[in-house]
Nucleic acid binder design. Structure first.
Lengths: 245, 245
DNA sequence: CGCAGTATTGAAATTTCTCAAGCCGAGTGG
DNA sequence: CCACTCGGCTTGAGAAATTTCAATACTGCG
């Protein structure tokens, strides 16, 4: 996979590729995926795709852009839970968990494919390989959440560095990096709301990473200057992303 | 389900009950589960069941006792990720994620049933309903992880109260409470390692909860004195546990 | 040019941790 | 039966980290 492919292929090919990443698919499996009905949708930055409490009847597939999952606290504050890139299926879980326990919003302008639950479920019923692959995809999601729990109890610099490593690594894995940069359209406050720290602390941690010449983050773009160094500071071990098997 | 049933029924019946909780099963489905091979194992407190980096070929089902999932940090410290009670399947994910990204250890003395992956996977291949049910089970796991991310960026008292609400609620849901108490065999240091706070802070938060007459925690037993009050302080909303549908 | 959102800075206020010591209860061995 | 030990709990106080508040730059865009 590379950026060009991702940009040019249509939603179904992207979905075939992403599913195949999580489990071996036969030609028949691929054909079955290609037969799935869906509709396209575009989302503006800040716009919600689904909300906590909703009962969605479609699952979202990201064709381009970035979405985030978040909890809304009683105080009205947000806790961002994860950031999703092209090729992700950030709410497959709604196939089986009827009520959304969190919301999903756009960060950058994004284009989505919405897959109605009923035909998708029917497909999974018929094709265990696809079922296993999508199940596995949700399991890697859970592994990322686990890592976030651990990460967010570490030092400010380490946790910021770790989030950057994760985003960059996942972007690269999906052919979404250009040179040493990847798209990450959030501001410092949002980083704080993801990492459980104030935006002031985010700012100071960013300065540290910049001064150490490990990476830079400006205008929604993350640039890695020294990957091994960043990995070391972050204590990043991609094991939990379960890439190669 | 109630405690008596849980204590007397054998592992397979417990597994049938737990699976049925996550999806409707036909008589044939239940029979298929009952035909699964497994072996029993007992675990002492502190003993590891599987470790980070392992490639398990069985999945663990808890018959009684309590297990915890945890990450080991480079410093050697632990981050506890979740606590699992009778009826839980804390490492089904290893069916599809070959390498363990975390460890699993006993907290109290526990008895387990170990289900070899190969026949289990074959069963899931044949029986989509069971596959969906177990998938759903892992999805509720992920929801609990998400909630932990949010929880651990809140005040000390709130996060401790929230963990207590979750444990008590899940225990009650599975018929594992007696009067207003549930089994929770951890010490204050371990609570700290779960919640990202020092054991001193845990101690002071416990005192607060005690003084407010919301709950008590002593010798591995959690006693709820004022459930609505505890829920309020915790900001606990069981939506994310996805019980009733 | 000027606005709005974002980033940066300094400093005070607060929270949280670390360290160090004492306490308590259960189990052990004299 | 009692002293002892061990692990876990509790307490206080200084040190360190973090947040909050307030003010000042910066940037892209209309």
């Amino acid at each position: 996979m590379n950026t060009t492919e991702f940009g040019n292929l249509d939603a179904l090919e992207l979905l075939v590729a992403r599913t195949g990443y999580h489990g071996a698919l036969t030609a028949a499996d691929k054909a079955a995926i290609r037969s799935l009905p869906f509709r396209l949708k575009t989302i503006d930055p800040g716009q919600d795709v689904v909300r906590q409490g909703d009962h969605p009847n479609v699952s979202v597939f990201i064709i381009s852009g970035m979405l985030a999952r978040y909890h809304t606290l009683p105080s009205g504050d947000r806790q961002y839970l994860s950031f999703h890139i092209a090729g992700d299926l950030p709410d497959v879980q709604s196939l089986f968990l009827k009520v959304m326990d969190h919301s999903l919003c756009g960060l950058g302008p994004s284009s989505l494919a919405l897959f109605p639950h009923a035909p998708l479920k029917k497909l999974l019923h018929r094709r265990p390989s696809i079922c296993f692959a999508l199940w596995r995809l949700t399991l890697t999601d859970a592994a990322i959440f686990r890592q976030a729990i651990t990460n967010n109890s570490r030092s400010h610099v380490a946790r910021l560095a770790h989030l950057f490593c994760e985003q960059y690594f996942r972007a690269r894995e999906n052919g979404l990096t250009t040179a040493d940069s990847c798209y990450f359209p959030v501001n410092q406050s949002q980083l704080g709301q993801a990492l459980g720290m104030s935006h002031i602390s985010v700012n100071r941690a960013l300065q540290r990473l910049r001064k150490l010449k490990l990476c830079e983050f400006r205008q929604g773009t993350l640039t890695v200057l020294d990957w091994p160094g960043l990995v070391r500071v972050a204590g990043f071990d991609p094991l939990y992303l379960h890439v190669a098997e």
